[in-house]
Each structure stands twice: as structure tokens, then as C-alpha cells.
């Protein structure tokens, strides 16, 4: 009997270890290394980072907060998709339903809205941080460029999402916003009709903004975010004073 129990234990342990190779809380340097490079989700990190990059007053966590907000937006956005219908007849009613009858509907909508507003703010602040700390200098030039496109995508996501409630605020903001695009020389009207799917903000515009908002722009965002994070590692982690030409003179820790 004892033999059987121990055999089962060994078997279960084997199964567990087939999933989690290291399989215990890291207590020493080896374990702390394995925690990162044996874990798919943690593997976007290096095993070790500089103390300097962890100083709260260096990054203020702005990039990370932006990324967290994006995750929150994906989560709440997908949840909202269960009730939202992108038609001129239904969209506004669904907003009212979310507010009044759907369980916790108002929470999801409010979180989505405030996270979106916050993301625009934090992405801009993150960009300012990178600029003021000179963190775009070689070898990080290209990651700055990726960051600029991520900022534009953030604007695009926020703008396309703005139309979806189909209220007066949405309708006129998008009427005015897309008219500004119409002033682009030569191809302005083409851009406008590409966005609106016609000449007015109507059903065609709503479905186009919806597809852009829930599939195309978030997809691009995820790809570029992947490149952005990967480049942080490949470019040697966060910018560090020791990379300066006159680093021998001192610099931070």
C-alpha cells in the first residue's frame, strides 16, 4: 500500500515537473535565474537588471503603466463586445443597457473609458520621460521610432472608439475629426471616404470604426508592443548613465 502511494506521488510529481521544469519557489541565485528564463511569460525580462532602472524616480513606471492600461483595455473591451452591436439602430440602446440593466455593465464601460483616457496621457508622459532622460540615443533609436508609432496607434484606437457609443458627442467629434483629415492635399478626400465608407458619418462609418477599433488597430498594437519590449532587451535594458561617452567621470549607480 505504501509502495503504491509513493508510486502515485512520483507519477504526479513527474506530471507536475513536465509542466513546470523548475517547480519550486526560487530561493537562491539559481532559482531566481530559472524563474525568468524557464518561464514563457517572464522571459520578456532579462534575468538581471540594473538597480538604476528600478529607481522609481527614474522611469516613474510610466511605460509599464501604459502597458497595464492596454491590458485592462483589452480585457474590458472584449467583455463589452459581448453586448455591443455596431449598428446605428442598436449601438446607442446598448450603451443605455450597459448603464442600466447589464450586471456591472457600467463598471466595464467606465473602466474602459477611463483607462483609454489615462492611456493617452501615460503614453505621452512615457515619451516625455524617454526624451528628458536622453534614452532614445544609440542604440535605442529604432525603439523610439516604434514608440512614436505606438503613440499614433494609441490616438487611433482612442479616436475609433470614440464613435462607437453613437451619441451626439461621438457623432460630432468624428464628423469634425474626419473633416480635418479631408484637408490633406491630393488624397484627403480618399482618406476621409476610406475611414467613413461614404460621404457622411453613418452606418458604414460605424462598422469601419468598429473593425478598426476591435481588430486591426489592437492587432498592430500587439505586434509593435512585442517589438518594443523585445528591443528594450536587445538594446541592453533601460538607458544607463554608464553608456555616456564620459561615463568614466562618474554617473549614477
Amino acid at each position: 500500500m505504501d509502495l503504491k502511494i509513493s508510486a502515485v506521488k512520483t507519477y504526479l510529481n513527474d506530471v507536475f515537473r513536465s509542466i513546470f521544469r523548475y517547480g519550486k519557489m526560487p530561493r537562491d541565485a539559481e532559482g531566481q535565474s530559472f524563474a525568468v528564463f524557464n518561464n514563457l511569460f517572464l522571459h520578456i525580462h532579462p534575468v538581471k537588471v540594473t538597480r538604476h532602472s528600478l529607481k522609481p524616480t527614474y522611469t516613474f513606471g510610466l511605460g509599464l503603466i501604459s502597458a497595464v492600461l492596454f491590458l485592462v483595455l483589452i480585457f474590458t473591451g472584449v467583455w463589452l463586445m459581448f453586448y455591443y452591436i455596431p449598428t446605428v439602430d442598436e449601438a446607442y440602446n446598448r450603451m443605455l443597457d450597459l448603464r442600466s440593466s447589464t450586471n456591472f455593465g457600467f463598471v466595464l464601460r467606465n473602466v474602459h473609458k477611463w483607462a483609454a483616457e489615462a492611456m493617452v496621457v501615460f503614453v505621452i508622459l512615457h515619451m516625455a520621460r524617454v526624451f528628458f532622460t536622453g534614452a532614445y540615443k544609440p542604440p535605442r533609436e529604432f525603439n523610439w521610432v516604434v514608440g512614436v508609432f505606438l503613440l499614433l496607434l494609441t490616438f487611433g484606437l482612442s479616436f475609433t472608439g470614440y464613435l462607437l457609443p453613437w451619441d451626439q458627442l461621438a457623432f460630432w467629434a468624428i464628423t469634425v475629426g474626419t473633416s480635418i483629415a479631408g484637408y490633406v492635399p491630393v488624397m484627403g478626400e480618399d482618406i476621409r471616404s476610406f475611414l467613413l465608407g461614404g460621404d457622411i458619418v453613418g452606418q458604414e462609418a460605424l462598422i469601419r470604426f468598429y473593425v478598426l477599433h476591435v481588430v486591426i488597430l489592437p492587432g498592430l498594437m500587439l505586434v509593435l508592443l512585442g517589438v518594443h519590449f523585445w528591443r528594450i532587451r536587445k538594446d541592453g535594458g533601460l538607458a544607463h548613465p554608464s553608456e555616456n561617452e564620459d561615463a568614466s567621470a562618474g554617473g549614477g549607480e
Binding site: 480618399d190 471616404s193 476610406f194 460621404d199 457622411i200 453613418g202 452606418q203
Partner: peptide, 13 residues
């Protein structure tokens, strides 16, 4: 693909 997205039929009023 861009031509596909170019509206040809007006569904509006």
C-alpha cells in the same frame, strides 16, 4: 485590398 475598402456603393440616405 485598398480598392476593396474604397466605397463604391453609397448606403447612406
Amino acid at each position: 485590398n485598398l480598392l476593396y475598402l474604397k466605397p463604391t456603393v453609397s448606403y447612406g440616405p
